[in-house]
């Protein structure tokens, strides 16, 4: 059978969702930000909630997320996205409100905002991209950088005495009464992406059920920051990140 006989509209089984814009993403080749954006966009399309969703982009590589998902967006000061989301949702309870934050944004400068938003049980979704590094500023240590991991500010590897320990903030978040769903996912292979999509959908659905905050961590790579190829970075993540940041649901009620 000729390829041209297969490539026909009626045979199409997967195409880019129209909720993703046609703008080429500024992310590095292989960066999972794109995959997670796509997953969120697909969930928005499948739930039919484009006109009811407000996204909040952080400071970090994903600051320009508003260029890629075709919904209304607000751009937050560094770490403050959960504070923005709190007010946006409380004033607009009919909207699906989500923050999209990296590890520096959420687990370092924005620790107070995310903890308190989750503790109040805001009916929002928090998407947390944990790649254990500051990508945008050039690969410095993040709160989630692993012990021994080399970054621009831990050139000899993260040393607990000098730099403290990697922060499992998702475990802390799961302890808070205000959260209803806390899960740790990844996006490095097809099965992981499909599971992530289910998690994101559940989180969005929760936000309309007055159950509290849904928190989805995505253990991710930063191949540029890690100085590996995209495929090598995925392997490094499986071998080094997953044993410490174990995948799965931490809380679901």
């Amino acid at each position: 059978m000729d390829v041209n006989d297969i490539i026909r509209p009626e045979n199409m089984v997967y195409a880019k969702t129209p909720i993703l814009t046609d703008t080429v993403m500024h992310y590095c080749p292989g960066c999972p930000h794109g995959t997670v954006h796509k997953v969120i966009a697909e969930v928005i399309e499948e739930m039919g909630i484009q006109d009811k969703t407000i996204g909040i982009s952080p400071v970090g590589c994903a600051v320009l997320a508003y260029n890629y998902i075709d919904i209304d967006w607000e751009q937050a000061a560094h770490g403050r996205a959960p504070a923005l989301a709190t007010a946006t949702k409380r004033l607009n309870p009919d909207k699906y409100v989500f923050t999209y934050q990296g590890d520096g944004d959420l687990a370092s400068i924005g620790t107070a905002e995310v903890m308190h938003a989750c503790n109040r049980g805001e009916n929002i979704v928090v998407i947390f991209i944990n790649n254990a590094i500051y990508g945008m500023t050039g690969g410095q240590m993040a709160p989630t950088t692993l012990l021994g991991q080399k970054t621009a500010t831990t050139p000899y590897g993260r040393d607990a005495k000098l730099n403290g320990y990697p922060l499992k903030i998702t475990e802390l978040i799961a302890q808070l009464e205000g959260t209803c769903y806390v899960t740790r996912q990844s996006a490095h292979n097809p099965a992981a992406v499909r599971k992530l999509k289910k998690a994101v959908r559940k989180a969005f659905e929760n936000s309309m059920m007055d159950k509290g905050t849904s928190f989805v961590e995505v253990v991710s790579t930063c191949n540029s920051g890690w100085k590996l190829s995209p495929v090598q970075a995925n392997k490094w993540m499986e071998e080094n990140m997953f044993p410490f940041y174990q995948l799965g649901d931490l809380k679901d009620r």
Partner: peptide, 20 residues
Amino acid sequence: VLQAESETSSINMVYGGATT
């Protein structure tokens, strides 16, 4: 009406509300 965890948060809640 909401009591925030800090002034940093309250002004950013204002930002989040004002966007809408």
